[in-house]
Amino acid sequence: MSFSDDRIGQGHWTSLRSEDAAQLDAILKEFLTVSGAKCALLVDKDGYLVTQQGEAFSFNHDTISALVAGGYGATKEIARLLGEDEFSVLFHQGKRESIQLTLVSDRVLLTVIFDDQTTLGLVRLYASEAAKKLGEVITRLDETTTSPAGHSIGEGFAQNAKDRLDNLFR
């Protein structure tokens, strides 16, 4: 298991293996079933999508992840002005779709998209429970992983990527 978020000398890395993602996905699925929400995404504070369950939307997941993380970071400044460290829950209401963000383990944001098929109260209640479970899993993964072991991407990856870039902007 390795939901690790380490600084390995040269930088800041987050990595997630398939078996670890399965644990997170199971919690998200259960949450969607009981809450009636449409989609649940786990987005880390750097703006990367960790995993996602539920209805597939046409929006680009990279973009929404970046915006969610950015928006959350901005409100952190507001919280600071109020003397809070950060807000643990954010809610944006739309005419049809709404979105709620719940901070998990100070690391990732449980991002829930829902419509009028359910209620804010239900989503908030079950999101709180799900966040607790997700936090336990992430903490457990952190404790069992002190380094990003098992993340070999293979020799020649860099050269392949560079060639691809060259080809892209020829």
């Binding site: 890395w13 987050t14 398939s18």
Partner: peptide, 14 residues
């Protein structure tokens, strides 16, 4: 940087 083996993705932030 994120290496997400579950989604088979590598993402870098520039």
């Amino acid at each position: 940087m994120q290496i997400n083996f579950a989604r088979r993705e590598i993402a870098c932030k520039i």
